[in-house]
Design a protein around this nucleic acid. Structure first.
Lengths: 339, 339
DNA sequence: GATTGGCACTCCAAACGGGTGAGTGCCAAG
DNA sequence: CTTGGCACTCACCCGTTTGGAGTGCCAATC
């Protein structure tokens, strides 16, 4: 059946090109993979594959290179996500287990992922939007200075320092603290914000203080600046590109600085443990047409609170990368479950 | 007086080379700077400067390039830190004024600095070591789960979640909170840690809880992981090097990932508003022999709690960079003063 | 009809080689 | 001490050559 063999040839081309970084010719192919046919036969197959747009040659008399469409077929049909070895799993676990807080979890994950994939890794901080309020604490530093601490279910802590319009004693503060917590604790932040806004009117005695505190909390909850937080690691892996500096490294470096762009790039992750792969020009950014993005969602339960993944050249080891991304996402999710 | 002119020639060479990035010859020199002498005379001067090690030629029949020693002389003797323009000052102020917390201040500073200098900027987070304890808060999330919040004078907030060996009621918790704060508030963290360690023995009733809380606090205080925190921005400016990828960009990219290395690189800043310049091989790192580091200390008062600066090629605009580093450090210090 | 060996062809990449010019060092005159 | 003149040196540019990997096509074979 010649069709099966054609696909085998495509797979072989992708694998060889990924590992050698050079266009691959018919002779080298039959030698390295036991295809059991002659170079001439492979050439015929390649001619067909080229016709159908799965591979291309940089110039006549050069070997073939997979196109975006070729990679796409490879990822969808020809590759199996290779499971991580026992040793790798242990390494992941021990690397992440030492984390002390959310920040630390994110930092460790991103470094881990970049080391596993030898690529640029990106981890989005868990979004505020879908998390719930665990507790609100009010601390009087001086009678007129208040530290407002907002603790969320993801383990994220936001704090703000506020000046009160008038001094407030401990009792009133306790009262306010209780009221605020009664209104907000356990709610998704959007609901909590609504509940809080209804509060000051009811609290006559220390109205000024209540208003300031509520404003601060609402502001902290709707602060989408923190939604946009992202951790990046592994930029030095870009150095391996050596060639194709202008086409690959420069635009990517620029994108890495623009966290907003990065967010968009990673943003549309599917939940449910599925790994998404966007190849080359499938993405929205002109300049990143020779890079691929491999992402997946993570979060406690199957919630996909946020996204993590890697960015690299279209010519990358997809099976390995997808496995690493999936494994790290699972471990991070598990850790968030426990917290 | 020929000696003065020789220095003028050196200065001209440095300035030209920095702006053109190409070896500069005698003819171009006399044209662009009104030196009032002939190329031949300049050649004689250049021969002497080369003999003394201030300049070198990449190869015979090429123009001259400053050596590290040449840059050093230029920085020490020949350059005046050019003051920032009014517009630049305003830009700095407005860029930094919107910051909401310490984290934000650091993030904004590092981006600002990288944009001003078009170089890689590095800002060290204010060290724990020299800051004092402003307040400790204990929040019971459930009867056996406690959130321990440590607030420092720099505005940094560390929080830890702990499991208690046994349930603790509100009153005991209030008591413990009061004791802990009496012991620690206002102290430099080293002293606070010592004072805290002496505490549990005195507190019989809820000994277990006290011990856990104290341990957590002491751990958080002595956590030098947080001393090593650093923010980096402007890596995309490396793209401008284009040439000299192997010698400059790659090692620098690697260093940027290794925050420990970066810290050492920036670490030895002098206090008192002085800007330190380390040129090329003067640094401890072999691979960074073609990069320079411009740093200064910052912090509330004249305390130099931490360091900030930029890393770039030895061939950089020293007066401009030094001015930017100094200006940003001053503004950040002022903001920390207010907080 | 698919597969195969043979063969002519294409075209990139690396090697070669002469010409050009910026820049130098030196020297003798001012 | 400065300057104009002059011979010299090399990196760089550019056109040419050559080698080889890889292809496409065709006729022979299974």
């Amino acid at each position: 059946m010649q069709n099966d063999r054609r696909l085998a040839v495509l797979r072989a081309i992708v694998e060889d090109y990924v590992s050698t970084e050079e266009p691959v010719g018919s002779k080298a192919l039959v030698e390295r993979h036991g295809l059991g046919v002659s170079p001439a036969t492979v050439r015929n197959d390649m001619a067909v594959l080229e016709e159908e747009g799965y591979i291309a040659q940089p110039h006549t008399s050069a070997g073939r290179v997979p196109t975006d469409k070729g990679y796409r077929l490879f990822v969808d049909k020809l590759s199996t996500v290779k499971p991580m070895s026992q040793a790798e799993r242990r390494a992941i676990a021990s690397f992440l287990d030492g984390a002390v807080d959310l920040d630390d979890v994110v930092q460790r994950s991103v470094r881990l992922l970049s080391q596993l994939t030898r690529q640029v890794a990106v981890v989005q901080y868990p979004t505020l939007a879908r998390s719930t309020v665990r507790h609100v604490e009010l601390v009087a530093l001086t009678p007129r200075r208040l530290l407002v601490v907002l603790i969320l279910s993801t383990g994220r802590v936001e704090q703000r320092l506020v000046e009160l319009p008038a001094a407030v004693d401990e009792d009133s503060l306790g009262d306010l603290r209780a009221r605020v917590n009664r209104a907000a604790t356990g709610e998704v932040i959007a609901d909590a914000a609504t509940a809080l806004r209804a509060l000051p009117a009811q609290v006559a005695p220390h109205e000024g203080a209540a208003a300031v505190v509520v404003d601060t909390l609402v502001e902290a909850m709707s602060d989408h600046r923190s939604d946009e937080r992202i951790a990046v690691a592994g930029a030095s892996n870009l150095a391996r590109y050596g060639d194709s500096f202008e086409t690959s490294v420069r635009p990517l470096l620029e994108a890495l600085e623009e966290h907003v762009v990065l967010l968009k790039l990673i943003g549309e992750a599917t939940a449910g443990g599925l790994v998404t792969v966007r190849i080359g020009a499938e993405g929205p950014y002109e300049q990143l047409s020779s890079t691929s993005v491999v992402t997946t969602g993570y979060g406690p339960g199957d919630s996909a609170l946020a996204t993590l993944g890697v960015v690299g050249p279209t010519r990358m080891d997809y099976p390995g990368t997808m496995a690493a991304v999936r494994a790290v996402a699972r471990y991070v999710s598990r850790i968030l479950d426990e917290a």
